[in-house]
Design a protein around this nucleic acid. Structure first.
Lengths: 247, 247
DNA sequence: CGACCCTTTGAACCCGCTCAAAAATGGTGG
DNA sequence: CCACCATTTTTGAGCGGGTTCAAAGGGTCG
């Protein structure tokens, strides 16, 4: 039985979905009626682990998370960053076991939604099912953009590209504006996301700073020159499929 | 109105889907009744281009295709390889425009299925909708595996990993066995898929050959030492989610 | 205010790249 | 069936973007 608190809680999801497409009143209502269980995690804690079989999805309400894979010798690849409104493990609805882990980057609040209630929702509202499907497809589109960076872009370009992407993602859910946004990740995290070393990330970051493109301090990113940054990154926002808001 | 030929044609799709999960008789019948338009492409031809808006999906019947993104200065990143039974642009069902291109690697036959008829199918058979959704989720899981390679694996490991993956994918649809499979791609294609240069691919390939792990000749891959190859690649087949057949 | 994590700096090194050319392969037409 | 041409593979030598290892500064949070 969803409580009044639940209804507030899922508004993060509604805002996110509305950044992708319009919702009907019935759909909004159905989402608000989802029963959820909220939980608070400290920084750098695993929410789900590689190999786990879960019966629920994790909606981020506040904070940041990342998905990652671990290799031998402690090598780590971060696959994605997630912000409020995201459901990073939505794929779990149709894939039985996790092929990667999900962890917080900082103090983070999440809402767990059971697969059962999500399946009931998608069975009842096929348009909403299509929208959630679409969300996982955008997730995959972002993977493709990252792959392209990892395979074919220089260190500067990769960093610039990631900053463009995160800024727009955050802006779409109202968490960024005026060319500044939270960026609560360390240079080590950046390195593991971009396939580089922390030392090199640091040097490139200082380079971007000295070229007056960005500043990254106190876990806040300030984009000093949006146009030039996009140019360095060769950034084309189409892949984010944020149809409701222009880039 | 589907013809008798159509029914044969979609059997590639059925075989692929059954490599993922079991199909009911109704589902098989529904797939076989899909109206399709087949078309033959020569080698290295674009089927759909970055930016296109399409009203149909492309099912590969025979041959190989790849998805790729182009950057400035002719840089190319190959995002995935596709074999008979795959629908490489299934994401087009819910994403209006292509964020990458799709091209043949060799002489290839495809069947086009209209979004319209696919949407009718998924509306009528929710379980089949879930299965197609699941197929796109596996697609994304493969992206994650590639990202991990591009970001954190050495050249040897990346090549070994790709060969393990392609062998299992082909085996799942009956196109490989006995540790050999078709591999109709050039070293330049491998380079663009793995974020390396053709020259380096060549040197690493010769290294793997001299270590008696694989041979790649006449567009055929022979895996001489499956266990060792998997070890080099640090390969874990779980991400392919091929539940029906053991790896 | 102390401890720990994070960022910054330096110097040597190496994996994979670049450019160039030769050898092998394979598809095509005569 | 063979000769031809284009594409692909192979080889060589030098180079460079990013790494490695180590240690010194800075923030930040209990």
């Amino acid at each position: 039985m969803p409580s009044a608190l639940d209804r507030q809680v899922t508004s993060a999801l509604i805002r996110k979905l509305e950044s992708i497409t319009a919702l009907s009143e019935v759909e909004r209502e159905a989402i608000q009626s989802l029963p959820v269980r909220t939980q608070v995690f400290g920084a750098h804690q695993d929410i789900v682990r590689d190999g786990d079989t879960s019966s629920q999805c994790c909606l981020i309400l506040d904070g940041w998370a990342c998905r990652y894979k671990l290799l031998n010798q402690g090598k780590r690849q971060i696959l994605s960053f997630h912000v409020p409104g995201d459901i990073p493990d939505l794929q779990g609805l149709h894939l039985p076991s996790m092929d990667h882990s999900l962890a917080t980057m900082k103090h983070t609040t999440v809402a767990f939604i059971s697969h059962e209630s999500l399946r009931a929702l998608t069975a009842r509202l096929p348009d909403l099912a299509a929208l959630l499907w679409r969300d996982t497809l955008i997730d995959a589109a972002i993977f493709r953009a990252w792959m392209t960076g990892l395979g074919r872009r220089s260190a500067d370009e990769r960093i610039a590209h990631l900053f463009c992407e995160m800024y727009l993602k955050l802006q779409a859910v109202g968490l960024a504006g005026d060319y500044r946004c939270p960026m609560p990740i360390t240079q080590m995290d950046l390195a593991d996301a971009l396939g580089l070393t922390p030392v090199h990330i640091n040097r490139v970051l200082m380079g971007l700073r000295s070229r007056a493109l960005i500043t990254l301090r106190s876990r806040t990113l300030v984009i000093e020159a949006w146009e030039e940054l996009m140019e360095v990154a060769e950034f084309d926002p189409r892949y984010l499929h944020l149809d409701r808001r222009a880039a």
